[in-house]
């Protein structure tokens, strides 16, 4: 079976010389949900921006369902950006069009979808996140949780194969956090979730990897990984007060 995502030997240094990735290897099988954990400055965002070819230039290789990410090839990179849907942390960065529906239509329209088909895509994506009745609203008038859900819809409208979520639970109230978890669980796509919210990782992702100092330093079932106190402490990962991963029944 072709891997949904295959990263081999990926390195990257910023122009100022700072090495962000020092040889990352990671493979995701289709339909898998994996949490990408790691302290601030570990290179998580840098890695995410490699998945759709926005950052490039180092050594190594990234493949999405067998298609290599080749930033020079415009046609191929459009297909890569369709396959990899990145939901950024701040929904105000992601929602830049004046209305919800226009924003959701932006991605598929860039792929050449027009007319009724485009309308159907918008409806489908907004239905999947339960935001259809807000389609003509101004993003600024939505709650933060609603904006985050619309941000997910903007990517779903492109029918991606991998959904990459950057800190999906940040700034959400507990109810919005749970609603988003239900939405993520209901989606039939491969998910790579960058998060500091370890209980969220445990709830949604059977498998987790830890990225630290530009390398994958651990790759294991989430429950096991969170229970390894020494490993966690070595990479500045801490569970919330009173949270015991062993006590959570999956």
């Amino acid at each position: 079976m072709t891997a949904a995502l295959r990263i081999t030997g990926l390195t990257f240094a910023y122009p100022d010389g700072r090495e962000a990735l020092r040889g990352v290897d990671l493979t995701l099988t289709p339909g898998e949900r994996v949490a990408l954990l790691g302290p601030n400055g570990a290179g998580k965002t840098t890695l995410v921006l490699h998945l759709n070819g926005i950052l490039h230039g180092g050594a190594g290789r990234v493949e999405i369902s067998g298609l290599p990410v080749t930033p020079g090839d415009r046609k191929a990179i459009t297909e890569i950006r369709r396959r990899v849907g990145v939901v950024f942390q701040d929904p105000d960065d992601q929602l830049f069009m004046p209305t919800v529906a226009e924003d959701v239509a932006f991605g598929p329209a860039n792929l050449g979808v027009r007319g009724d088909e485009l309308d159907a895509r918008v409806t489908e994506a907004l239905t999947a996140v339960g935001m259809l009745e807000h389609r003509d609203q101004i993003p600024h008038h939505l709650s933060f949780g609603q904006r985050r859900r619309v941000a997910v819809a903007t990517v779903l409208a492109m029918r991606p194969e991998i959904l990459v979520l950057d800190e999906p639970s940040s700034n959400l109230d507990p109810a919005s956090r749970r609603e988003l978890a239900e939405i993520i669980e209901s989606l039939p796509v491969t998910v790579l979730m960058v998060t500091h919210d370890l209980p969220y990782a445990l709830e949604l992702c059977p498998r987790s990897v830890i990225l630290d100092a530009g390398r994958i330093v651990a790759d294991a079932p989430t429950g096991e990984l969170l229970a390894d106190r020494d490993l966690m402490a070595a990479h500045r990962l801490e569970l919330p007060f009173g949270f015991d991963p062993a006590a959570v029944r999956r």
């Binding site: 960065d93 992601q94 239509a105 932006f106 990517v155």
Partner: peptide, 23 residues
């Protein structure tokens, strides 16, 4: 800075320099 982040988000959704035309 927001402008830069918005631009990245646009690129990620297949922006190539022209907005989809208003039908």
């Amino acid at each position: 800075e927001r402008g830069e982040r918005v631009y990245l988000a646009m690129l990620s959704r297949g922006y190539t320099g022209t907005m989809p035309s208003v039908a």
